[in-house]
């Protein structure tokens, strides 16, 4: 039987791993590759890597520790794919078919697109026809406005006319393979997922929906899997706070008889970080 997935999301801002609150406050958590190595060892089911930088400056120099200097996001993807034997989804600042091609060529298995489809919905069908639906994830950022759910564009800054259910159905019909559904109101709040929104969207599409936004305790993962039809549960911040976080979270879900892979720890053969 197909398992529900537990997916750590890594937010990258100008080359650094950050934690996020309400899509606007960011705190530096350090080197992205080291984090990937950890998450891989704790047997995450998948990784989502989102570049939320507003400009092109990257600086992850850590000469004190002999870390490699990576000047571009692509370099980071390449190193990430060297360090984990699990599927990687890469998102952020994807505007063209060429942007997708570059990411896939450098080790991404799927790409995550957010704003471009809202500007030109045909971008989804074009991308799906070029690379296959299986590698096109559309992320949908949602905010409550006067009691109504509204899809937001441009990293949560610009309101659109779409209700998330309507938008999810539309991207599904255009050929999206999965939907990453994020609540801006819950981002960084640790109060749990917006279950109502997850239910509405996961009831209305057949493609897998990945829940995101608001996890502060392991129970929140269980709640989404028990009460909604989401296929996967994702979170960012919580996975960076605890040692063996993914393992512990999965153990919790597994022992609750939820449909996840058994928890496991992997000892990778190589030293982890590839130093070139």
């Amino acid at each position: 039987m197909k398992k529900n997935r537990l997916i750590p999301v890594l937010l990258l801002k100008n080359g650094f791993l950050v934690q996020s609150k309400s899509f606007c406050r960011y705190q530096n958590l350090g080197d992205p590759i080291t984090a990937v190595k950890r998450l891989s060892d704790w047997a995450s089911d998948e990784l989502i890597y989102l570049d939320i930088s507003q400009d092109d400056s990257y600086d992850t120099r850590r000469e004190d520790h002999g870390h490699p200097n990576r000047s571009k996001f692509i370099d980071i993807i390449r190193d990430v794919s060297h360090n984990c034997f699990m599927p990687i989804t890469v998102g952020g600042r994807i505007k063209t078919i060429e942007d997708i091609r570059t990411r896939l060529a450098n080790g991404a298995d799927k790409v995550c697109i957010n704003t471009q489809p809202l500007l030109t919905p045909e971008f989804v069908s074009l991308a799906a026809s070029k690379f296959g639906s299986q590698c096109i994830v559309v992320s949908v950022d949602v905010k409550l406005k006067e009691g109504k759910y509204v899809v937001m564009a441009h990293g949560g800054k610009v309101e659109t006319a779409y209700h998330p259910v309507e938008w999810a159905k539309k991207v599904e019909s255009l050929g999206a393979g999965e939907i990453l559904l994020n609540s801006i109101d819950r981002d960084g709040m640790r109060s749990g997922y917006d279950i109502e929104m997850l239910s509405q969207v996961s009831d209305s599409v057949r493609i897998p929906v990945i829940a995101m936004g608001g996890v502060g305790e392991w129970e929140h993962f269980a709640e989404a899997l028990e009460k909604t039809k989401v296929d996967a549960v994702a979170a960012a911040n919580i996975f960076h706070y605890f040692d063996q976080s993914v393992f512990v979270a999965k153990k919790y879900l597994f022992e609750k008889n939820l449909n996840v892979r058994p928890p496991s720890l992997i000892h990778s053969g190589h030293g982890g970080v590839i130093l070139k």
């Binding site: 197909k2 398992k3 296959g132 999965e178 057949r206 493609i207 897998p208």
Partner: peptide, 11 residues
């Protein structure tokens, strides 16, 4: 009743 493509971990 399940989605296509078949994406994810299965035994």
């Amino acid at each position: 009743n399940v989605s296509l493509p078949h994406i994810g971990w299965n035994d």
